Simulated assay, not measured.
Amino acid sequence: MDARFLGTAELVETPSAAVVVDVMRAFTVAAWAFARGAEKIVLAASLDEALALKEDHPEWVALKDGPPAPGFDAVNSPGLLRSADLGGRTVVQKTTAGTVGALAVKDAPLVLCAGFVVAEATAELLRARGCDSVTYVVTGEDGRADEDLACAQYIARRAAWDGEAVAGEYLRRAGASRAAEELAQGVREGAHPDDVALCLELDRFPFAMVAAVEDSLMVLRPYA
């Protein structure tokens, strides 16, 4: 299985299969949203689009990066979202990196969104689909975020049935990343003290997350 690791800005062609990785925190949050009962997640291109969708659908739950803001129901924090009741709800998510990366590959035949919490389920789905070539979109820090690259490399090795892919070294890299340090030090607003630990829970959830265009919107759904 051929694997490429690119930042969002480096994408120059539509891949046949894409895994968009945002460990801290967009797709860890997305996985928690599904675990808390969300039916689907709409990935918004801008804050204005997220607010417009919320206005059109008041029953939807809108979340964003950073501190709480008028019009939004939640922030992009797994620690703050894990107690939410999202049964049957639609979530609108807009983040700085993760949602941007997913929208950049929206025309790909297969788009998966991932973090460590769904790593094995993501690798299993890639194997099941028989993907010969996969582009891993490293969303954080313009493609240089080590937590995202570590997760992408781990999933790639698991997807290739590499028995030597020991998770510990990849999790250590993620835990020592700039994003982890900033979250631990409280530099980033809209965070919870447990966010880093929750983002590093390997295979917490048994589903992958597949994104596809539905009625002109990029929609993320769990895939067991």
Rank of each mutant, 00 (worst) to 15 (best):
M1S: 08
G7K: 10
T8E: 04
A18L: 01
A18M: 10
V20L: 00
D22E: 08
R25W: 12
R25L: 07
A30L: 06
A33T: 09
F34C: 01
A35S: 15
K40P: 05
S46C: 07
E49R: 15
K54W: 03
D56P: 04
W60N: 11
K64P: 01
G66M: 01
G66F: 02
G71C: 04
F72E: 03
A74M: 03
V75I: 07
P78W: 04
R82H: 15
V92L: 07
V92M: 00
K94M: 05
K94F: 07
T99P: 07
K106M: 13
V111R: 09
V111F: 08
C113D: 13
A114M: 08
G115P: 00
F116T: 00
V117G: 02
V118I: 10
A119E: 00
E120T: 15
A123Q: 13
A128Q: 14
Y136L: 00
D142L: 03
G143T: 07
E147A: 04
C151Q: 09
Q153H: 03
Y154R: 11
Y154V: 11
R157H: 11
A160E: 11
W161P: 02
V166N: 12
E169I: 02
R172Q: 15
A174W: 07
A176N: 15
A179S: 12
A179K: 04
L183Q: 08
L183N: 11
G186N: 11
R188N: 06
E189I: 10
H192S: 12
D194G: 03
C199Q: 13
L200F: 00
P206Y: 10
P206D: 14
M209I: 02
A211G: 09
E214H: 15
V219K: 08
V219Y: 14
R221Y: 10
R221M: 06
R221L: 06
Y223L: 12
